[in-house]
């Protein structure tokens, strides 16, 4: 899976979670860039990402995921490690 495929997947999820189909993400995007991406929506996005990519994030990892790029590299590491 390429980084850009993962980015597309995360974009779909964030659009649904924030209910805005115009959202465009880059690896540099953070929660602060979007009104409504609060700590609760963050959990929604994390859970949907886990299901979509078949991975599971650790408690500490969830805390450390700040940029969309962090999501991508964690997913890549987990998919390769599996």
């Amino acid at each position: 899976m390429t980084d850009s495929e993962i980015l597309d997947g995360i974009t779909d999820i964030v659009r649904d979670a924030l209910e805005d189909d115009t959202i465009v993400l880059s690896p540099e995007s953070t929660a602060n860039d979007f009104a409504g991406w609060d700590s609760f929506k963050h959990i929604t996005i994390v859970v949907a990402t886990e299901l979509r990519f078949g991975v599971k994030f650790r408690t500490a990892e969830i805390e450390s995921m700040r940029k969309v790029g962090d999501f991508i590299s964690l997913i890549q590491a987990k998919v390769k490690g599996a």
Partner: peptide, 14 residues
Amino acid sequence: PVLWHKGKIEIAPA
């Protein structure tokens, strides 16, 4: 249990 500690979520959102 991860979500419980993260947000006191007992029933998984999914």
